[in-house]
Amino acid sequence: MLLIECPHCGPRAEIEFRYSGEAHMVRPAAAAACDDATWAAYLYLRDNVRGEHAERWRHTHGCGQFFNVVRDTLTDRVVTTYPAGHARSAAGGEI
């Protein structure tokens, strides 16, 4: 079980959280106008990296907030966590 540091509540066990997919996925600005391939990429295509992965989690059994985690998918080690809306590099340092 992962130990995840919620930026608002501190370190808690994984079962308090819900994984919510790859982070920093940007919805196409003109959603109604964009072509099918762009929309498909936004909805379905993922980096699925081996290594450091930026992902959204929600503290469902705590503060209820979404936030971001950088985690190494080879070791499952949590590298850093930071509030939603923050850029990955700014909060995560050299990653």
Binding site: L2, E14, H53, D76
Partner: peptide, 12 residues
């Protein structure tokens, strides 16, 4: 629930 290549998962 999370993506991983570690070939291990949570004991829960």
């Amino acid at each position: 629930q999370y993506p991983s290549y570690s070939q291990t998962g949570g004991v829960h």
